[in-house]
Structures are given as C-alpha cells and as structure tokens.
Computed example of a mutant assay.
Amino acid sequence: MAMGYRLDRYGRQVPVGLSARQTDFSELPVIDLAPMFGSDPEAKRAMAQALRSACIEVGFFYLKNHGVPQPIIDQAFAASAEFFALPYAEKMEIEQTRTPGYPGYTPMQEESGDAKSRKRQEGFNMNLELPLDDPYVTSRRPFFEPNSWPRRPAGFRDTLLTYFGEMRNLGQKLLGGFALALDLPEDHFQPMITKPITMMRVNHYPPQEDQASDDEDIGNGAHTDFECFTILAQQKGITALQVVNGKGEWISVPPIPGTFVINIADQMERWTNDLFSSTMHRVLNKNAMDRTSIAFFFGSDDDIVMSPLPNCVPEGEAPKYPPIRAGDYVLGRVDNAYEGNLKKKLA
C-alpha cells in the first residue's frame, strides 16, 4: 500500500515508498492487435472497445500479435548490450550534452558526477533518421537532429534503425486502433503523422537489490511520458517496471513473452481531454542482474496544433486544455526534464 504522497516538479501527487504489490495482472489488460491487420469490421470494433477500456481505466496494457518479428527485437537487445558493455570513455564520445539536440549517450549518475541526476540508469537516445539535406534537419527543428552513432559495436546503427522502423510501423497501426477506440475513422490520425516526432531510448539499469535510499534514488523515478504513447520492450524474465493503480499502490509489470507494454502519454491525454489516462510509472531494478529496456515514444507531426477532440469534450463544457503546437509542447516537456539544456543546444 502507498505510505503517503509527495509532489513532483509538475505539482502532481506521487506515492512514496519502494515496495510494490505483486499481482496476477489480469487487471492489466492484454490487447490483441491482430484484427488491425485484417479486414473484419466486427473484430476491429471488439478490439477497439477493449482498447478504449484499457486506456480509460488503466492507461497501460500489454500488446500481443503486434506483427514485429521476434528476431528483430532480440537483435536490438543484443546490440544494445554490446554498446553498454563498451568502455565508459568510448561511450562518452557521443555523450548527449556534447551532441546537437536529443540524440546520444546519457551516463549514469555515478559516472557523470551529476548531483542533480538521481537516475540509476544509462541510455542511448535516437531520433527519426532523416537525410542530412532534409529541410527538417537543415532548419534544425527540435527532435530531427542527426543521430549520434558510436564507433562500435559493428552493426549497431543498422540494427537499431531496423528496430526503429518496425516501431514506427507498429505505432501507425496502433494509432488506427486508438482512432477506432475514440469513435473516429481508422485513418483519422494518418494525415497528422507524415513526419512525426518519434524518439527512442535504450535504457540500461544496473542491479539495485538493497541500495535505494528513497523513491527517487532508483532506475527511473515516478513520471509520465510526453508524447501520444510509448511502446516498451522489456528484457525477458526481469521485472522492474511499476505503475500506479487507482488505489495509489505501486504495481509490478512483469514482461510477458511475445508482448510489448503500451502506455498512454501526456499528449494523448490532452488530445482526449483527459478521457485516456497518462499513468505514472517508475523503474526499480531489485534483481541480481542488469536490465535493459527499449522505449519508443510515438507522437504526431510537430506542426500539428493539438486541441481536445470535440467528441471528447462533454456538451456544454469547455475543453480542459488550450490549443498548442505539438512540437512546442513536446519540446517544453523534454527541456524541463533536461533542466533547460535542450533549448540551449538548439539555440
């Protein structure tokens, strides 16, 4: 049970304490995406209804029959493990503050010496890969800066780009399911994702069996994500992700073979006028081994103006959120997380 709350940097209540309840997770839905690859309207409607319930009641769900080949997932994890095993100095050649925009390597707090950072993780960040002469690249639009690739391991770039491409395709398919779940045409969002803000972060968490001093001194403290939704691949057999349920309890989210974990993020919560829940989550690796995860953040085109969807605003009520350009919203949220450094790098 939660032992109380604290306020995070956005003024939201976060349950304190390091314990998490173990459960059978029949309460965390498993959504079957198979109907979205077919043409049966009844099957799609049934899937959309299950998806709608998951997004309203939980904000998190497992996704099965997603169409991403398992070897591509396995290769991405293997390449990531090779990268994180490199010497610290070599990884620091592409350290995130030394490279333009968002891409690059982020070290663990112990290695970086950054007293402000309490995350017990290191990561590799990447954007949608565009040609260097693309107008989005040459004009230095946020989140379209060229990626920063390490010298090693061999094949790392191609492996992660292949995985990124699969995630982008899956995100487009899943967004069609979200449209149906919102009683919209399946292709409603397609014109809004022609060149979307899509980012990916590979996370590496060392073991933290009994070392945490409080609920911020962990792999990743309580937070919500910024874009429309996140597609998370978890390392097999290692449970570290936790989400908050409606009772304010931290609930462990074990990996289920053949599935991704999907969570609604803040952009989708705004778009749906709070109908879909962006649920707080954290990472605490209390295992005796390292843990890797791959998070793909799927958003809209950056020049889309987000306003709450009309069919998500009750008749006679005003929308909860004013219109805002999607790129400005995401930049503001990410820059806040990076304590203002991202905007400075883009200046």
Results as ranks from 00 to 15, higher is better:
residue 315 E to I: 11
residue 284 L to H: 03
residue 223 H to Y: 11
residue 218 I to L: 09
residue 67 G to L: 08
residue 307 S to A: 14
residue 127 N to W: 01
residue 295 A to G: 02
residue 20 A to S: 09
residue 80 S to Y: 07
residue 283 V to N: 13
residue 239 T to L: 12
residue 26 S to F: 09
residue 50 A to Y: 05
residue 307 S to D: 14
residue 5 Y to P: 03
residue 55 C to D: 14
residue 261 V to L: 01
residue 342 L to Q: 11
residue 336 N to T: 11
residue 336 N to A: 06
residue 21 R to G: 08
residue 129 E to C: 06
residue 263 N to M: 06
residue 72 I to H: 03
residue 113 G to Q: 03
residue 175 L to F: 05
residue 85 A to K: 07
residue 148 S to C: 14
residue 216 E to A: 06
residue 100 P to S: 06
residue 25 F to D: 11
residue 74 D to Y: 12
residue 309 L to I: 04
residue 103 P to Y: 00
residue 238 I to A: 04
residue 247 K to H: 06
residue 335 D to Q: 02
residue 321 Y to V: 14
residue 294 I to G: 13
residue 95 E to W: 00
residue 291 R to G: 12
residue 24 D to S: 14
residue 28 L to S: 07
residue 43 A to W: 15
residue 1 M to C: 07
residue 177 G to L: 12
residue 345 K to Y: 03
residue 202 V to L: 10
residue 302 D to R: 12
residue 98 R to K: 10
residue 12 R to A: 10
residue 184 L to Q: 11
residue 159 T to E: 01
residue 214 D to T: 04
residue 140 R to Y: 15
residue 198 T to C: 05
residue 313 V to W: 07
residue 98 R to Q: 08
residue 25 F to L: 08
residue 197 I to K: 02
residue 167 M to R: 00
residue 302 D to Q: 04
residue 3 M to C: 01
residue 187 D to M: 00
residue 192 M to P: 04
residue 107 P to G: 06
residue 36 M to D: 06
residue 326 A to C: 10
residue 45 R to S: 07
residue 243 V to L: 11
residue 9 R to T: 07
residue 128 L to Y: 06
residue 243 V to K: 04
residue 66 H to W: 08
residue 332 G to Q: 04
residue 17 G to C: 04
residue 307 S to K: 09
residue 14 V to A: 00
residue 260 F to T: 01
residue 175 L to Y: 04
residue 38 G to A: 11
residue 141 R to E: 15
residue 246 G to T: 07
residue 321 Y to P: 02
residue 215 D to G: 15
residue 253 V to G: 01
residue 24 D to I: 02
residue 37 F to R: 07
residue 147 N to E: 00
residue 57 E to R: 15
